[in-house]
Amino acid sequence: MEHTFVPAAGSVTACAVVHHHVAPEPPTPFVVVEIALDAGPVVRSLLRGASPDTVVIGGRVTGAVDDAGRFAFVAVG
């Protein structure tokens, strides 16, 4: 299988603020988004560091790795 690398940048197409989660991490509430990557694929991911009130459909996001090496998307702009 060959890997195809695509840039982790795109726009939010759907979002949900999650208030109930079976695991302790991440603490609730957290935001899950669906992202149309500029390269074409559509993915779902945690939106790290987002305030639930500020996430908008069409908002720009990009992939980022935190200090613990965990990948997630963050809002930009």
């Binding site: 759907a14 949900a16 999650v18 109930h20 079976v22 899950v32 669906e34 779902r44 991911s45 945690l46």
Partner: peptide
């Protein structure tokens, strides 16, 4: 594997569809 890593329970899957 999946990028969402278990964060998308059924209610969140449909919450995202609802958002759309």
């Amino acid at each position: 594997g999946s990028l969402e890593g278990g964060l998308v329970a059924p209610f969140t899957h449909f919450a995202l569809l609802s958002s759309q």
